[in-house]
Amino acid sequence: MRSGMRWLLAGSLLLNLLLLGFGGTVAWRLRHGAVGLVEGAMIRPLHGQDKRIMRQAFLQARPEARAAQARMRAAHLAVDTALRAEPFDPAALQTALTSWRLATDAFLASFEAPLLRGAGAVSPQGRRGMAALGDKQARRAARGVGP
């Protein structure tokens, strides 16, 4: 019986760790949103000093990126509002879509300065690792698999 209790305890501990990891991931994504996802993707392939350099570059630009993300979300809500409007107004939807596209472009542009600043200080190996991330995403897109 003691052996069965040990397995039960180990299984319970494993389940709790999995739930804790899942909950932490969800909380992190809710807190950091798309900004955190982009930063995380760019930093993930790096190691040591390269990782610290890029993290610092993104940290300095985070207020601008978060503001751009808020504008992008607001523009997306305007698209949803235009789609739900009765009577439907195609001109209002076109205006909202244009605003959303511009806000999305501004959000993506908010990562240019930290990427330029950080990449200039990162090792050649680190830059190759960052470029490999883009290669991986391109291969996934070519297969029709998510972003």
Rank of each mutant, 00 (worst) to 15 (best):
T104P: 00
A142E: 13
P90L: 05
F22R: 10
A67C: 05
V35D: 07
F107K: 03
T25R: 09
R128C: 03
A103E: 04
F88W: 08
H47M: 11
G134T: 10
S12K: 00
G126K: 11
T95F: 02
W100N: 04
A74H: 07
A74S: 09
F58Q: 03
L37D: 13
L13I: 12
P45C: 04
L97R: 11
V35P: 01
A109M: 11
A141T: 05
L37R: 13
D50A: 13
P87I: 05
G48F: 07
A57E: 08
R29L: 04
L133M: 15
L37N: 06
E39R: 14
A41E: 14
G23L: 09
E39Q: 12
N16R: 08
A119T: 13
A96H: 07
G126T: 09
G126Y: 03
M42F: 04
L116P: 00
H76I: 02
L102V: 04
A91H: 07
G120T: 06
G24N: 11
R139P: 01
A65C: 01
A78K: 10
A34K: 14
F107E: 05
A57L: 03
M5H: 11
G118N: 02
F22K: 03
P114V: 07
D80G: 09
R84W: 05
A57C: 12
L8G: 11
E64M: 12
E112Y: 09
L83W: 03
L59H: 11
V122A: 03
G118Q: 01
A142F: 08
L115I: 09
I53S: 02
K136D: 13
L59E: 14
A132I: 05
R143T: 02
G21E: 08
F111G: 00
L115S: 10
R71I: 01
V122G: 05
M72I: 01
A74T: 09
L9T: 06
G129I: 09
L59F: 03
S123F: 02
I43Q: 08
R143C: 04
G33W: 06
A78E: 10
R139V: 11
R143G: 01
A132P: 00
G21W: 06
A57W: 03
A10M: 12
G120V: 02
W7G: 06
L108Y: 08
L17M: 12
R101I: 01
G144E: 10
P114D: 10
L93N: 06
G33P: 04
P147I: 10
E86L: 11
A141W: 10
N16M: 14
G36T: 06
R127S: 11
A75N: 03
L77I: 03
W28P: 01
R117M: 01
G118K: 07
A41H: 08
P45S: 08
L37A: 14
L8N: 04
S110N: 04
F58A: 02
R52K: 15
D89Q: 12
A138L: 15
K51I: 00
L108E: 14
V26C: 07
A34P: 00
R2M: 08
A131R: 13
Q60K: 15
Q69H: 14
E86D: 09
P124C: 04
P63M: 10
G134K: 06
L97I: 00
R71G: 08
L77A: 14
A91Q: 13
